[in-house]
Nucleic acid binder design. Structure first.
Lengths: 331, 331
DNA sequence: CTGAAAGCGCTAACAT
DNA sequence: ATGTTAGCGCTTTCAG
């Protein structure tokens, strides 16, 4: 039909006919059947994004970025959750990549391994958002966890802190390990010695951060600053500081990592390392589009920079501590 | 082909052939093309859910419930966000309902009006999750905000509080209004008089709750309990209480509404009214399935009960306040 | 510039 | 129990 050409804005249609068709479409309430179009045209104009779950804020942010980028490109975004059910889900991934979507963005905080098979046989391009350094046979988008941690340490050290505790994340995520490495090397570069007693597991959760900070502050009351591996555990740490009758930041400074929306909404507002979550989603979709259009560049490993966001939860250490030991300038 | 029958588990196939087909499928790595199947069969085995955005926790919970229910029914869930872009999105809804999904669940905290046109012309069943009392031409799932607020007030009153502040939500949501009504009538039923000075706007946000609680406690230091219209503003209220050098719950009790996951993770853990968010998602999908299968019942207005979740943020008022005025038993 | 014909990959109804 | 035929609603290719 001529109608098809009008609807798809193809050339070779007189303006008069175009108008007539548009009128009729409006009158009849005609809406194209996306399924039929997809089958016929061989593409769906839909991109897929697979996430472990939609609960955690940082994943929401990635999705939001992907959603915006897809929308700008005039494509739909189909969100699929794995709910940790790898078995069933890798089947689902297979289905997605065979006719349902034109490209797939996998958000995988932990391992890409479980999907390797389904992904290798995908009929569409795949890009991985890793949130942690991983090897991947697909183009990968990540952020610079190590440099972020270094920036956090520089900030705390330059404020005059030298007893800095670290609340670790999940040991099974590369991101947590990288952040820990940044913490350690930050100390070393400043001429300080990492002490095991200053490191506690927080498991990336708020109660975990609370408990870890409690242990930290009770074992080493001289701690004047806490760097948590993510914002959630930093929230818990702030609660722990207050619970001990201390103030943030006057007595103890607290830093997080991620900059989820809530970081700016808690009291005091959290100083943190911003991970460009929405940009990571955007970048992932953009890479996908570049592959699809055969234009632009596809970077095998795109590592986005992190950034210090200075808010109200950090300050110089209390006067008593400030002069007790000279601070070596970092770097 | 016979293959089709095997894959769809149709009857009338010998076990031997079935095995042979399965083998070949595995060997060739064959995966059905969902698009073609959808076009041919006239259904997509996909349900759609439209949400304003995926950021807020309470929406994530609704999606999770919907996701689980859809998964159990062997259907996929296509999540679409409006990002408040009503114009563009109502077009999108039109597309969804014309071939992309077999049914649509609309999560609309505010108004269904903007989508009325697109929805009325939908070719598939539509169910609305409202989070607030609304009229709707479609089956609606909601929770009982009024009774929840009453339960919250009963809890606080029975603990001995009689100067109870309220942090309101957004005036443009029916849910907030219902919760406020529950607050007022809770007071009245207990023989107490609602005072305007005890009500502050919190806008459903954490900073909003913080500021509202600050105003509340400074204007009326005799306030011994704060009931916030949602958990987020309750978090802010808890921060405000601590900021004033008071303790939760020893000096001031704080209650929220929703029971988002974080409510159990903050310190002290938040006493709140649980809105069955995942169940609402589930129920919405279930209603959709009932319409689709022509079985079970479809309730025009399904109002799920709310529930008091007693945690650590509420306690009897400080001794000085307890006896200053006799408490009339509620009801 | 417009219309007719073919076919995307599958399923449903109908033969064999 | 298996195979055959038609057609889902669209886009694409090719004639008018």
């Amino acid at each position: 039909m001529t109608v098809s050409k009008v609807i798809n804005n193809k050339a070779g249609i007189s303006e008069a006919t175009r108008q007539k068709v548009h009128l009729a479409v409006a009158e009849l309430g005609y809406v194209v059947n996306a399924t039929a179009r997809a089958l016929s045209a061989g593409r769906t104009n839909t991109l897929g994004i697979v996430v472990p779950s939609i609960g955690p804020q940082y994943i929401s942010e990635v999705i939001r970025g992907a959603d915006l980028a897809a929308r700008e490109a005039g494509l739909d975004l189909l969100i699929s959750t794995t709910q940790e059910d790898t078995e069933h889900e890798s089947q689902n991934v297979g289905r997605l990549t065979h006719g349902l979507v034109d490209g797939l963005l996998m958000v995988l905080p932990r391992s890409v391994q479980s999907y390797a098979h389904a992904l290798m046989h995908a009929h569409v391009p795949v890009v991985v958002v890793a949130t942690g350094n991983q090897n991947s046979p697909f183009p990968l988008v990540d952020s610079d966890h190590y440099q972020g941690a270094r920036a956090a340490m520089s900030h705390l050290l330059s404020l005059g802190h030298h007893r800095i505790g670290f609340i670790a994340g999940r040991a099974d995520t590369a991101a947590s390990l990288e952040r820990f490495r940044g913490y350690q090397e930050g100390l070393l570069t400043a001429g300080l010695v990492p002490e095991p007693v200053l490191v506690e597991e927080g498991n990336y959760t708020q109660p975990g951060g609370f408990a870890a900070a409690l242990r930290l502050l009770q074992a080493t009351p001289a701690v004047t600053a806490i760097f948590a591996a993510n914002d959630l555990s930093a929230f818990g740490a702030m609660e722990a500081v207050k619970e001990l009758g201390l103030r943030v930041p006057q007595d103890v400074s607290v830093m997080g990592f991620d900059d989820i929306p809530q970081a700016s909404q808690v009291y005091p507002a959290l100083t943190t390392i911003r991970q460009p979550l929405t940009e990571m989603g955007r970048a992932g979709i953009k890479q996908l589009l570049n592959v699809l259009h055969g234009a632009g560049t596809v970077t095998d490993r795109l590592v986005l920079p992190t950034e210090l966001i200075c808010r109200a939860s950090t300050a110089p250490p209390p006067a008593g501590y400030l002069t007790s030991e000279p601070l070596l300038s970092p770097g």
